[in-house]
């Protein structure tokens, strides 16, 4: 499939897509700095570089469509419309966090937005998404589910079993493979037996498409067609997006395993946001206005997060069916 260049996408959708992509980038860049400064607890996996994937796909989804995410979940959250202020508070473990400070970066979730959670367990989102998609099918309102996975994590048995289940049960479920070339420090060809995940889909009887994940328009168009097919009862599909990871696997990873110049090249030559800006047809003034807004939003989110109180100690026991 050819999916490049400008399209017939409406101005509103373009602007909103840019806003979400830029929000992700700014959010992640800020976390990178703040993590280095030692003010962010725990470990965080940043989504920077992959923005066009989450946003290109989630632009087609409503709050009733559900997504299951991964350890690298901030981008999926923002693309799905989760509140940025509450996300930042969550990542700082504070009151007002989207999960009340209980989950943190790796478990960020917002069921009201159809965001079933980032996940600390590779592959674990796929079976959950099968259940969400089954609920969609049974309700018959044309809602769909999407599960994101990385090039390494989609080799987990849970994902492969889910691909089979989704096909056998004809579920409206899209498997998205975000192929950024690495699972931690391990290159794609050392975790996966095939170079194209389309081959995997074929084995499970599912249609599949591969796109340049750095090209928002390619992702948007392909996802649109696949999601429309699912809404019409066509069963599960797979979308592989070839993309790039800008930062280390997690904050603190020196990335010395990547070829010399690879990271610099990614920032300079493989930046999905710059590509979008150059090809979207949005005016420089429009883009700059979004940039300013987003910068302010992210700054404010950090200020608010650092001001927010820590959870009260009695909250330790809340939210588990039986506790003592």
């Amino acid at each position: 499939m050819q999916h490049t260049g400008k399209t017939d996408i409406s101005h509103d959708i373009l602007l909103s897509a840019y806003r979400r992509m830029k929000t992700i980038r700014t959010f992640e860049n800020r976390l990178h700095e703040d993590f280095k400064a030692g003010i962010v607890p725990g470990f965080t996996h940043l989504y920077a570089g992959q923005e066009s994937v989450a946003v290109g796909i989630c632009s087609h989804l409503t709050d009733q469509d559900q997504i299951a995410s991964t350890h690298r979940g901030h981008g999926h959250c923002i693309a799905k419309g989760v509140d940025v202020m509450a996300m930042m508070k969550e990542i700082h473990g504070r009151q007002g966090g989207i999960c009340k400070g209980k989950g943190g970066s790796m478990h960020i979730a917002d069921l009201s937005k159809g965001m079933l959670g980032a996940n600390g367990i590779l592959g674990a989102g796929a079976p959950l998404a099968c259940g969400a998609a089954l609920a969609d099918r049974l309700e018959g309102k044309g809602h769909v589910a999407v599960v994101f996975g990385g090039d390494g994590g989609v080799n987990e048995g849970a994902v492969l079993e889910s691909m089979n289940l989704a096909s056998v049960w004809k579920l409206p479920l899209m498997f998205v493979v975000e192929n950024n070339g690495y699972a931690q420090s391990t290159p794609q060809h050392r975790t996966t037996s095939v170079s194209s995940y389309e081959d995997r889909a074929r084995g499970f009887g599912m249609p599949a498409v591969t796109v340049d994940g750095l090209d928002f328009f390619a992702v948007y168009r392909a996802a649109g067609e696949l999601i429309a097919r699912m809404r019409a009862g066509g069963g599960p599909v797979l979308l592989e997006c070839r993309t790039v990871r800008f930062y280390g696997h997690f904050e603190g990873d020196t990335q010395r395993y990547r070829p010399a110049g690879d990271v610099k090249n990614a920032w300079e030559e493989r930046d999905c946001l710059r590509r979008f800006a150059q090809t979207s047809g949005l005016s420089p003034a429009e883009l700059e206005a979004v940039d300013r807004d987003v910068e302010q939003l992210v700054n404010a989110s950090v200020q608010e997060a650092l001001k927010a109180p820590h959870p009260a100690l009695n909250e330790l026991h809340d939210g588990v069916y039986v506790s003592y």
Binding site: G103, H310, L316, S323, Y324
Partner: peptide, 14 residues
């Protein structure tokens, strides 16, 4: 306690 391990550093310490 009989709860999952909370993320919040303050709750984790508790």
């Amino acid at each position: 306690p009989h709860t999952p391990v909370p993320f919040s550093p303050v709750l984790e310490k508790a």
